[in-house]
């Protein structure tokens, strides 16, 4: 089956009806009224924007690469997720000091094994671990993904090009409360002796959602050093 996933470079045409978007107008209206009335400040908005600009899948990639390279860190990541995140520069309490309003501070990493493959979905909205993966992909938020990932996971995974053996348990995590999840894929063969930086480059966003597996031939650039939030 060919993949229905158009990849990271998909440029599709999404028609917009008129030159000034009423959504843009409404957002500005809400923001300006909120600032005028002192509900939040322009500085709050700027600070949150700066944080949002710094988060992305590279955070999760670094976590997984470090866990693959360091068994003690892996243990910490699986048992104390938010604590482990600090070691790569991700602080779940940012940017407000108490975490983001939508992501909370309960982070759990789901380890894939030869017998269990994990995948995440939020059927009720689109809960997603933004501090470690950034903004969710558009398809993750669609009713189509939310409807079918829970009761037809193997079909949906096949549409992403992922065909799992019958004897691997597919474990769907419907993220319906305050917990946020990320999948830790298995380290693939052919990566022996790789540095953490090299490993991070094959841990793509989709492998941490659980709709793909790392492929040593598919690498996405990851900035070196700590995550800056």
């Amino acid at each position: 089956m060919t993949s229905m996933h158009d990849g990271h470079d998909g440029h599709n045409t999404f028609p917009v009806s008129s030159k000034v978007s009423e959504f843009e107008i409404l957002e500005l209206a809400v923001r300006e009224l909120a600032i005028e009335k002192g509900i939040f400040s322009a500085e709050d908005h700027r600070r949150f924007a700066e944080w949002a600009d710094g988060v992305g899948p590279h955070g999760g990639s670094k976590l997984v690469a470090k866990a693959w390279s360091d068994p003690a860190f892996k243990e910490k990541l699986l048992t104390k997720g938010t604590e482990a995140c600090k070691e790569v520069g991700i602080d779940w309490l940012q940017p407000t000091g108490t975490g983001t309003p939508s992501d909370y501070t309960f982070f759990y990493v789901l380890e894939n094994t030869p017998k269990v493959h994990n995948v995440i979905v939020c059927t009720l909205c689109s809960c997603y671990p933004r501090p470690v993966l950034g903004m969710s992909p558009d398809w993750y938020r669609t009713p189509a993904y939310r409807r079918r990932m829970v009761n037809r996971p193997r079909e949906v995974l096949a549409e992403f090009g992922l065909h799992l053996p019958d004897d691997v348990e597919v474990r769907v995590h419907d993220s319906n409360q305050k917990s946020r999840f990320m999948v830790m894929p298995m380290r693939p063969d052919g990566t022996e002796g790789w540095s953490e930086q090299e490993l991070a480059e094959i841990v793509t966003r989709d492998t941490m959602i659980g709709v793909a597996l790392p492929d040593p031939k598919v690498r996405v650039p990851v900035p070196a050093g700590e995550v800056h939030q």
């Binding site: 996933h5 923001r31 709050d44 908005h45 949002a52 309003p101 903004m135 992909p137 558009d138 009713p143």
Partner: peptide, 27 residues
């Protein structure tokens, strides 16, 4: 539901600003 293509539209400016405004209202 039927299978639907999984698209990567990416956030427009107003969409990112909507996220930020909604989060600031929560904050």
């Amino acid at each position: 539901d039927a299978p639907t293509p999984y698209l990567e539209k990416g956030e427009e400016d107003w969409e990112m600003n909507t996220y930020l405004t909604c989060e600031c209202l929560g904050w």
